[in-house]
Each structure stands twice: as structure tokens, then as C-alpha cells.
């Protein structure tokens, strides 16, 4: 546990009880810790990054949170935070790449580009983020599902836990969201 842990635990509890401002305070603290841990990870086992990232967030959780004071549900909430952070980090990265290379033109996607299963390209990431933001204005919970799954790597049941709905709802939300986003990215600007 670090010095921050009681502070962070408190914020986490607040947030899971519905206090939105707690999230704003939580984000920079957790992000800092993730960065720090990530550097440590590069020195160790070097297999699948997906496993690593999950392990990383896990470790951050164990380090930052006082286990005695939280319920087990809070673990999922912590991962949800990690998802938000990850989204933010990736978007900043994508925007930097984009700005540096293109000088700030708007991003346009064609269907064939969108079909690429693995989103590594900055432009597509920015487009996705914008589409997701628009989506969240109309369908907030479904957008949340996307964020948790895609950026946070959470499984359906974990998403269900965070959002307080059933797994089935999550799966339906997911298919709806995917359809909406796909359509949006192909058509819209």
C-alpha cells in the first residue's frame, strides 16, 4: 500500500456511492500509478500484452486500495476507472500522432478501413472516440459498455457488475452499440 491508499480508497468508495466529483480526483492519482507500474512491467515477463495490462491494473488496484475497507464490487469499479484512463491516454496519444503527421485535418473513414479488426491506427481511434462520445449522448449506458469492454478489457460479467445490470443486458447493449458505431463511422464525419 502506498501513502495515497486511504485517500484513493475513500474516493473510490465515494464514487461507487454516486459521487461524480470523486472520479475527477481519482483519475490523475491512478494514472500516475499506472504509469509507474507500467515501467516496472517492461522489465519483467514479456508475453502477451493483454495479460500484462490486466495484471498491471490488478497490481495497481492491490497497491492503491486498502482491501479492508472496500467491498469486492469495488474492484470492478477500479477497473472501470482504469478503462476511462486508458481511453484518455490512448486518445491523447492518437491526437498527438495525428496532429504531428497531418497538421490537423478532419478524419474520414471508409468501410474497408473500419473492417480492420485491430485498431492501431490513430485516425481510426480518434474517429471511434468521437463516435463514441456522440453515442453516449443518446445511449449513455451502452456507450459505457463499449468503454469498459474496449478500453478496459473487462469481460461481460465484469461490465455487468460495474453497471449494475445483468450480463444479458450487457450483451444486448454491446451488439446495439457495435451496430450504431459501425454505422456512424462509415457514414458520418
Amino acid at each position: 500500500m502506498t501513502d495515497h491508499s486511504s485517500q484513493i480508497t475513500g474516493l473510490l468508495v465515494d464514487w461507487s456511492n454516486g459521487d461524480q466529483t470523486a472520479l475527477d480526483k481519482l483519475l490523475p492519482l491512478v494514472e500516475q500509478e499506472l504509469h509507474r507500474l507500467a515501467h516496472g512491467y517492461m522489465r519483467r515477463e514479456n508475453r502477451d500484452h493483454t495479460l500484462q495490462t490486466t495484471a498491471l491494473v490488478n497490481e495497481a488496484y492491490l497497491k492503491l486500495i486498502d482491501q479492508n475497507k472496500t467491498r469486492w464490487q469495488n474492484r470492478a469499479h477500479f477497473f472501470a476507472i482504469a478503462a476511462t484512463i486508458m481511453r484518455r491516454i490512448l486518445l491523447n496519444y492518437a491526437r498527438d500522432q495525428h496532429r504531428d503527421k497531418r497538421g490537423g485535418k478532419a478524419v474520414q473513414i471508409s468501410l474497408s478501413e473500419v473492417s480492420v479488426a485491430h485498431f492501431g491506427v490513430p485516425d481510426q481511434l480518434i474517429a471511434l472516440d468521437e463516435a463514441l462520445t456522440r453515442f453516449s449522448l443518446e445511449y449513455e449506458r451502452q456507450a459505457r459498455v463499449v468503454e469498459l469492454r474496449y478500453f478496459g478489457g473487462l469481460e461481460n460479467d465484469e461490465v455487468a457488475e460495474v453497471l449494475g445490470v445483468s450480463s444479458i443486458t450487457v450483451m444486448r447493449d454491446w451488439r446495439f452499440a457495435k451496430a450504431w458505431l459501425l454505422r456512424e463511422m462509415v457514414n458520418g464525419e
Partner: peptide
């Protein structure tokens, strides 16, 4: 499958 796989690799 466009967003089925989480983007954790890049995130990491």
C-alpha cells in the same frame, strides 16, 4: 469484429 478485441496492447 471491429471492436471485439480490446485495445489493451496499444494501451500498454
Amino acid at each position: 469484429s471491429f471492436i471485439d478485441k480490446p485495445i489493451l496492447n496499444l494501451g500498454f
